[in-house]
Amino acid sequence: MNFILLSIIGALIMLDKYAFGEFGISQPIIAGTIIGMLCGDIQSGIFIGAMLQLIFLVGLPIGKDIPPDGQAAGIVGTGSYFLLRVTNLAGHALCLALILALISAIIGGALEIIARRRNERFFHLFMRKGKHLFIYHFFGLIPAFLKNFILILPIFLLANYLIIPRQFPELSRDLLTIIALSIGFANAIYLFLKKSTVVYVILGALCGLALLVF
């Protein structure tokens, strides 16, 4: 799929993060599935999306806190993997895509602060004029979309034309699974382990072991 079109679709999906609806479709696992579907390899999209989801399971947008952009990581990770895979080995593509995803999560968090500061201007303009609420409110969609597009486009442009040298390390799916499982487990324990829930964690682990053995 064309990288410009993919960037536009990615930026539109990311609007779900806060600008419109918040239906959860911008979460890495869903965004990965959508991008995988568009690029013709839904299984890889789901796999990368699920792994990034485990890494970004904790990201609580509470109050003024803006955590790293897990949603951007999901879209950049899956999108750049499919673009890189066209001209590179799958292991190379996966490794670079994951690195780009993590970097974009940090940059995305910073860009979001800028976009939300831009919205302050619309609020002050509205306060001064006291009318055209509809217009000033929906102006907020512009920085939200642009922030996503500005973040995604250069990365997809790079991924579309980059030829990765052979010396670049490869990342296997098994290794990514181990890393994502470890971080996902740590995130889940941090969120759900309490005195009252210890028994359910043990029960889950025992059920898991039973599933593994039988």
Binding site: T177, F185, L191, Y200
Partner: peptide
Amino acid sequence: LGAFFAGLLLSLGSLKMNYLLLLPITILFI
């Protein structure tokens, strides 16, 4: 449900998976 599936998460891999590698990373991130 979250606690139960946190426990179950460990079974996502397989018996061949390197649990010696998984545990230190998990502890570090916790």
